[in-house]
């Protein structure tokens, strides 16, 4: 008689940064997912109105700043959190947001790395948590003239000492997760999506295309391959359910030059000398005509940064479903 396989344990998921649009969509999708028993969300703000109608037997919201050691400890020790018996963590918070007008200049951005490290350690110490999923970004890759168009998961990361601090933090956090890959205690997966397009998404490409004017360096028109936010949510859902470890690139259906997407978004493409693109982007932010920060997405404007998604296709079964719409 064939032995019956023991069913996969039902997922009980903690999502950090749950009030950001991507994490919020993930929480809502997981609550609709019959294979997910419980969803807990944590963020630094008061519980938003859109969570108040959710089924309390399956959803818990906690207000805590996970980048502060004491608050993180209190979260893990709290009664309702322990009763939730979380077994999967999706780390979708990386404060502050990479772009947007509200980026405070004096933020000690290395708290992102320290906070991620503390969260990882807590997860390893926890007797219930078996799975950790980190939402990384395409920005961790080194993009330079002639860098491979096929950036697979083993491509060079941006270890440039002159790289902007938030990008360094992303790379450091990504590497932190990878150092624990061999752990028997915790299965870690890192998702690196291509530039994300979607409603209210603070990704660099989304903010760039949202502006009425898009300054581009003259003589450059790189191919971009953005991914819809709903596809990223699907990829995270797959990672929640599949017992796979490692780094996974995901990208969207459409691949075309940047000028094509600028035209589709209804913006005006403004070719200017390459050395003036950054000050122009800064000026547009200053006059509130754009929220795009050249610091975090400037590489997109000159050189292609296309991700090789074969591993996600083969091991995760991920295929992009949603077309980019403006």
């Amino acid at each position: 008689m064939a032995e019956l396989e023991s069913p996969a344990p039902a997922r009980r998921v903690l999502i950090t940064g749950v009030t950001n649009p991507l994490a919020r969509q993930l929480a809502e999708e997981l609550l609709l997912d019959g294979a997910v028993e419980f969803v807990a969300g944590v963020d630094t703000v008061e519980e938003p109105y859109y969570f108040r109608d959710l089924d309390r037997s399956r959803f818990l919201y906690k207000r805590a700043n996970i980048y502060k050691s004491r608050e993180l400890g209190n979260l893990f020790l709290s009664e309702d959190f322990r009763a939730a018996r979380i077994n999967t963590v999706v780390h979708a918070s990386f404060a502050p947001p990479l772009t947007g007008l509200q980026v405070p200049i004096a933020t000690p951005l290395s708290t992102n790395v320290q906070g991620t490290k503390q969260l990882l350690e807590r997860c390893i110490e926890s007797p219930d948590i078996r799975r950790f999923i980190f939402l990384s970004s395409f920005l961790v890759y080194q993009v330079r003239p002639g860098s491979g168009t096929y950036l697979d998961e083993t491509a060079d990361l941006n270890f440039d000492a002159d790289a902007e601090r938030p990008i360094q933090d992303r790379v450091d956090a990504d590497m932190l997760c990878r150092t624990w890959f061999e752990s028997d205690k915790l299965d870690i997966a890192v998702l690196r999506p291509a530039p994300i397009i979607g409603r209210n998404i603070d990704g660099p490409l989304n903010l760039y295309l949202d502006a009425p004017f898009c300054p581009v360096p003259m003589g450059f028109d790189p191919i971009v391959n953005p991914i819809h936010a709903r596809d990223v949510v699907r990829a995270l859902q797959l990672l929640v359910h599949r017992d796979v470890k490692g780094v996974f690139n995901v990208a969207g259906k459409e691949m075309a030059p940047l000028s094509f997407f600028i035209r589709m978004a209804g913006a005006t493409r403004v070719p200017i000398p390459a050395s003036t693109v950054r000050p122009s982007a800064r000026l547009l932010r200053f006059i509130r005509a754009s929220r795009f920060d050249h610091t975090f997405g400037g590489c997109l404007l000159r050189y292609p940064c296309l991700l090789d998604t074969r591993k996600a296709r083969e091991l995760l079964g991920f295929e992009p479903n949603f077309h980019i719409k403006f």
Binding site: T149, I223, N225, K253, E254, M255, P257, P304, L306
Partner: peptide, 10 residues
Amino acid sequence: DEGLGYDRFG
């Protein structure tokens, strides 16, 4: 052709 008349190498 990746769908919009371009391939990934441009």
